[in-house]
Structure formats: structure tokens, C-alpha cells
Design a protein around this nucleic acid. Structure first.
Length: 329
DNA sequence: TAGACGTGGAG
DNA sequence: TCTCCAAGTCT
């Protein structure tokens, strides 16, 4: 993984760059390694250190993050980079407690950075560690109530020697061997002491409380292309869903939203809607598409010139709408 | 403290 | 097609 240093460098006492550790850990929050890899490469190529990132315009960072999800992470990433520069002389705090004070850094990320970048024996507990501990110690209590117990069990195993390598090793074990489904107990180095394995319930742990069903919300989005190729977009407010990202003007997303076009035009119905599922609801988004003249004066949003418009800077639901509009215009 | 907050891949 | 979920944080 591009954010790790090799064993040869590690053997010389070299530490990984705290900036790269921080960036990778934030990207990896609730996100798979496969999804993060290319984003990490693009971010570090464009912004090689925390000072460069802190100096970047908001819209550049949000656009580079587009598609990775949980956009509050990108907003907090910038806040954090700027705080490190302005309040910590451009250096990340080296302790769990110091890191916890920064935006977007919670208990897991603070411990991970402290252990991996600064060799602090912090207790690193993510979903992988929770799963490994629940199985190793046969914890039947469901998550999230079991959280405190699992942290205590993880703390009892955390070594003072090479805590960063230990933390990554347990997370790697969870990601590759002690997986949620069909764990590979036959090649697991902890198969012998594993209580869940002995009881034959390893595939059922950790237990989890049932989640709420996702309601259906609907909405309408308006995609207007001006005669010169510019698209009518708007910047979404910083708070809430897709906060700070570009999007198409349209209705709210609700059980039965009211809607109002952003400008007068001959709106066409493409006959296809966008279906998208967020963490807590399903969305059916109807589309209205129009070609408008150069002097069109929108009541909402702004025309982004085609030379400045990259579909990759849109969140996925907005890019799905764009793909449909482009196919019929 | 429980709910808000994205996405793409696996089964 | 559908559910689950992945290296969580914020409010």
C-alpha cells in the first residue's frame, strides 16, 4: 500500500511520514483499501505535504475527493491541515491526546496515527480489531454495546514494542483472514487460542443489533446545458448531505418534495430516473433536461464553463444524472 | 446517544 | 436485485 514504508526502511528506524499516515487513515474511514488507493496517489501527487494541502482552494480538494463519499471527511481534512499549519507549526501532534483535538480525527484515527507514525503504544480499535477480539474472546454481546468491552480486550493485548506494526498486523488479519464472512481459520495464526473457533461460532461474531430499514425519498434534478456548453450547477451548503459538493439544482429529497425549476426553459423528461442508495435512505431522482440560450438567467446556481467542468468532480448521484443527460443531448 | 453521513464490491 | 458492509466522526 502506497502509504506504508517497506521493512528495510523500517529496520533502519525510519518512520512513515505523519502526513501520509493521517491522509490514508482519514481516507480509510469506512472505506476499502481498493477504493482509497488511487485517491491517495492523486492527493499526494497534487499536495505532497500538509502545507501544500492547507493552501489549496476548498473547491479543488472537494473536487478531488468526489466519488470517495462521506464528504465531511474532506471538509475536515482541510480544516485539520490548516490547523496543523497555523497552530502546530506544520507538524502533526505526536500523541493520541494531541491528535484528538484536530477536526476529523476521532478515537480510532488518533490512536492509529500515534502508533504508526510516532511509535506510541496507543490502543487502535477499528472494525477489524472489534471483529478479531470478539472472536478471539468469544464475546456474544452485540455491537455497539460491546464496544467498551472490546476496547478493553484490545488494550490488554497492545504491546509496548512496535505498537504501530502490531496495530497494522491485527487490522490486516481482520481484513484478509478473520473476515466478516467465511473467515480463513485454516491459515490463521491465532486459530489455536481463538475461543469462537473452538465453539464453532466464528462466522456469527461479532453479533450486531438490527439496523433501521431505509425509507424511500424522491426528488427532481434540473440539468441545463447552455448553448456554449456550460452546465448549470450549484454549490451545496457545507452542512448536511453531500455538503460542500457540486450538484444539480432541484427539489429537496423527501417523501413528497415540492419542486421549482431554476430557470424557465423547455424541460424534457428523459424517461429514465436515477436510483441511488445512501447510508440511510433510497433515492429515486427524476430528471428534467434542457438546452438553453446564451442569455439564460438562472434563479439558482451558476453556469460552469465546459472547460472548467469535470464530471469526476461530482458526487456519484450527480454524475449518474449527468451520464443520462449527456446521452440524450 | 442514536442518527446522519457515500460508495462500490461481494455474496 | 438486494442486503451487507469497510481501517469512523460528528452532533
Amino acid at each position: 500500500m502506497p502509504w506504508r514504508i517497506g521493512p528495510a526502511d523500517r529496520a533502519t528506524g525510519q518512520r512513515p511520514d505523519p502526513y501520509r499516515v493521517w491522509l490514508s487513515e482519514v481516507m480509510l474511514q469506512q472505506t476499502t483499501v481498493a477504493a482509497v488507493r488511487d485517491y491517495f496517489r492523486r492527493f499526494t501527487a497534487r499536495w505532497p505535504d500538509v502545507a501544500a494541502l492547507a493552501a489549496a482552494p476548498d473547491e479543488d480538494v472537494m473536487g478531488e475527493w468526489a466519488g470517495l463519499g462521506y464528504y465531511a471527511r474532506a471538509r475536515n481534512l482541510l480544516k485539520c491541515a490548516r490547523a496543523v499549519v497555523s497552530q502546530h507549526h506544520g507538524h502533526f501532534p505526536s500523541t493520541r491526546e494531541g491528535l484528538l483535538g484536530l477536526p476529523g480525527i476521532g478515537p480510532y484515527t488518533a490512536a492509529a496515527i500515534a502508533a504508526i507514525a510516532f511509535d506510541e503504544p496507543a490502543v487502535v480499535v477499528d472494525g477489524n480489531v472489534e471483529r478479531v477480539m470478539a472472536r478471539l474472546h468469544l464475546v456474544e454481546t452485540p455491537l455497539p454495546p460491546a464496544k467498551a468491552e472490546l476496547i478493553a480486550l484490545a488494550a490488554a493485548l497492545t504491546p509496548d514494542h512496535r505498537p504501530g506494526d502490531y496495530a497494522q498486523a491485527v487490522m490486516d488479519l481482520g481484513a484478509t483472514i478473520c473476515t466478516p464472512r467465511n473467515p480463513a481459520c485454516g491459515i490463521c495464526p491465532w486459530a489455536q487460542p481463538c475461543a469462537a473457533r473452538a465453539a464453532g461460532v466464528q462466522g456469527e461474531l461479532p453479533r450486531k443489533l438490527a439496523k433501521a430499514a431505509k425509507p424511500l425519498r424522491t426528488g427532481v434534478a434540473y440539468l441545463a446545458r447552455r448553448a456554449d456548453g456550460a452546465w448549470l450547477l450549484e454549490r451545496r451548503p457545507d452542512q448536511g448531505l453531500l455538503g460542500g459538493m457540486l450538484g444539480w439544482p432541484g427539489s429537496d429529497w423527501a417523501a413528497s418534495p415540492a419542486d421549482q425549476p431554476p430557470l424557465a426553459a423547455d424541460w424534457r423528461d428523459p424517461g429514465a430516473e436515477v436510483r441511488h442508495t445512501f447510508t440511510h435512505f433510497h433515492l429515486h431522482l427524476a430528471l428534467r433536461i434542457a438546452e438553453v440560450p446564451l442569455d439564460a438567467a438562472p434563479e439558482r446556481g451558476f453556469f460552469l464553463p465546459s472547460a472548467d467542468f469535470r464530471p469526476s468532480a461530482l458526487p456519484t448521484v450527480m454524475r449518474k444524472a449527468y451520464d443520462i443527460a449527456r446521452s440524450i443531448l
